[in-house]
Amino acid sequence: MSTRMTTAERESFLAETHIGVLSVAGADGRAPMAVPIWYGYRPGGEITFATSPGSVKMTLIREAGQIGFTVQQEAMPYKYVSVEGSVVGYEPTDADEYRQWSMRYLGPRSGRAVLRRHQGLRADDGHRPRAARALADLRLRQEFSG
């Protein structure tokens, strides 16, 4: 049995609902930061995620300009995909995109509660998360399906 995935299998797996693990080079020679994070992905597109503009995470991402990203399935059959890529943009989180993420990860009831908490926050007030977009041409680092 092969433990390799086809490109279509990898992209489909990345598009499923998983918590991703974002990694970015640490500052001043420190170890990389690795954090669990919600994300969005459509096959053939960019991985998008959001974090506060003034966070340590966003500061490191801006400094490094590139990220590593891992998605795993903890139940049998175990699977994971690990990719790396350059960050190609920073922009305020689109309200519709954030709504989709909230519903995807929390379900309708809890997702709506999160959205109500974020209503009224503006992108320029330092509180509304900003999306970072990683290159569509993500380079595969590792994969396993078995």
Rank of each mutant, 00 (worst) to 15 (best):
A25Q: 01
T59C: 03
Q72D: 12
S52Q: 07
V56R: 02
G45Y: 11
P77C: 03
A132M: 02
R42H: 13
R139G: 00
I47H: 05
E16Y: 03
Y80L: 11
G85W: 13
E46D: 09
V81W: 12
V83I: 15
A123F: 03
E11M: 05
G54N: 04
G146N: 12
M76Q: 10
Y90H: 12
P92L: 11
T7F: 03
V114C: 00
H118S: 08
A132F: 05
A25N: 01
E74P: 04
Q72G: 11
T17G: 04
R104K: 15
T3M: 07
A64Y: 06
Y105M: 09
P92G: 13
Q66N: 10
R4C: 03
Y41C: 10
Y39S: 05
G54D: 07
I67A: 03
L115T: 00
Y78D: 02
A95I: 05
Y98Q: 14
T17L: 08
H18N: 14
A31K: 07
P32R: 10
A136Q: 09
P108Q: 13
P43L: 06
R10K: 15
E46M: 07
W101F: 13
M33Q: 01
R141I: 07
E46T: 04
A64V: 01
Y41H: 15
Q72W: 14
R122S: 14
V81I: 15
A136E: 08
S23C: 05
D28V: 01
R62Q: 13
P43I: 11
T59V: 04
D124F: 04
G85D: 05
T48H: 07
D125G: 04
A113P: 00
K57Q: 08
Y105D: 15
V83S: 06
R99I: 00
M33E: 09
F49P: 01
I37R: 05
V24T: 02
